[in-house]
């Protein structure tokens, strides 16, 4: 298997990650040979339908899959060149929040209703850094201001229920930055928000990336979001990466039929590029993803692929380089493989 051309010194390297979980029917491989590489300052997106394994990927990276659910990890995850798959819980605590932190998926339910917002931010700062209480308060206020909140002091003093959805989203993002992580991971951070607020939040991520140099991994099912923010993208289907590359490459030169279908799911591409145009996602590809418990030996997308040939049902395509200027553009499709061989 050809792997992506990787920056060996990258901040986060995921190599051939396989994650298995327990199910009532037995062990299930939810992630299959995932390869990702994110460097400081990068903005990357993972896109895919619900159930494709996006959340599993980031929960594997942070090792947050609960003991009862997790069967095993295989492969390698390295942070700053250091393998983290076999380090202890104590050391992992040093990575969570400080090196890699999560932006809560649902800002409405991810803040503790019993405490003022500011208190929750400084709780994290005080626990994870050596700052004094006064410094922690200053830092929290600074972060809130950085998030474009005008009345940072008022928000700091508010309880979560007193804030609008947009403000809470900003608070949650500020929280994720509390200990100056090198990478923040946002799992569908905008799917619950109004389109106009979604755009603001995406702009905010860009600003954070620009001003603080924080790398961002954004998880979404919406190619509109990918197009607006990410420099590179990995398309996931049924626990595998099926296409991966620079965003512009993948959007303007999609190689995988599934990527194509996802792109067709954005009926009005305008919203990506014009502020204020509401988006109307029509997220539906005919058919169902395969059951991970009993996979055929062929391409996992075969039963939904309008280009499927007989061979697709018996041979599993590998992730291979696309014949294009982008050396990192990879695709997992037998059709492209053949096209490649014709090209030779």
């Amino acid at each position: 298997m050809i792997q992506a051309v990787r920056k060996k010194e990258a901040f986060l390297n995921v190599t051939n990650l396989m994650t298995k979980i327990h199910t009532p029917e037995g062990s299930m491989t939810v992630l299959d040979h995932i390869n990702l590489s994110i460097d400081k300052g990068d903005i990357m997106a993972i896109v895919g339908e619900s159930g494709s394994g996006k959340s599993m990927t980031i929960h594997s990276i942070l090792q947050m899959i609960t003991k009862n659910l997790l069967d095993s990890y295989a492969g390698e995850i390295e942070v700053e060149g250091k393998s983290i798959l076999d380090i202890g819980e104590k050391e992992m605590q040093q990575i969570r929040g400080k090196k890699i932190s999560l932006v809560a998926q649902n800002a409405m339910t991810s803040l503790d209703p019993s405490y003022r917002v500011g208190k929750q931010i400084i709780e994290i700062i005080l626990d994870k850094t050596n700052l004094s209480k006064r410094e922690a308060i200053e830092k929290a206020l600074y972060l809130l201001e950085e998030m474009g909140i005008d009345e940072a002091k008022r928000v700091f003093q508010s309880y979560p229920h007193q804030l609008s959805g947009g403000l809470r989203q900003r608070v949650v993002i500020a929280m994720s930055l509390a200990c100056d992580p090198d990478l923040i991971i946002a799992d569908e951070p905008t799917s619950a928000l109004d389109p106009s607020v979604q755009l603001q939040v995406l702009e905010l991520f860009k600003k954070i990336n620009r001003d603080l140099g924080t790398a961002i991994l954004i998880i979404t099912h919406d190619f509109g979001v990918v197009a607006r923010i990410a420099e590179s993208v990995a398309v996931m289907y049924a626990g595998q990466i099926v296409e991966q590359g620079k965003t512009s490459e993948v959007i303007y030169n999609p190689q995988h039929p599934y990527t194509n279908s996802l792109l067709n799911c954005i009926p009005d591409l305008d919203w990506i590029f014009l502020d204020g145009v509401g988006k109307k996602p029509l997220f539906q590809i005919k058919g169902e993803p395969p059951n991970l418990m009993n996979l055929s030996s062929g391409c996992r997308f075969a039963n939904r692929c309008h280009m499927a040939k007989d061979i697709c049902r018996s041979k599993l395509p590998e992730l291979k380089k696309v014949h294009s200027p982008d050396l990192n553009h990879l695709v997992r499709c037998l059709l492209t493989e053949r096209r490649e061989s014709y090209a030779k």
């Binding site: 992992m92 605590q93 040093q94 999560l102 991810s110």
Partner: peptide, 16 residues
């Protein structure tokens, strides 16, 4: 609750 899981994701001590 989501907020408990969120605080856990920051690597705060469990007992706290």
């Amino acid at each position: 609750k989501d907020y408990v899981k969120y605080f856990q994701s920051f690597g705060l001590s469990k007992s706290k």
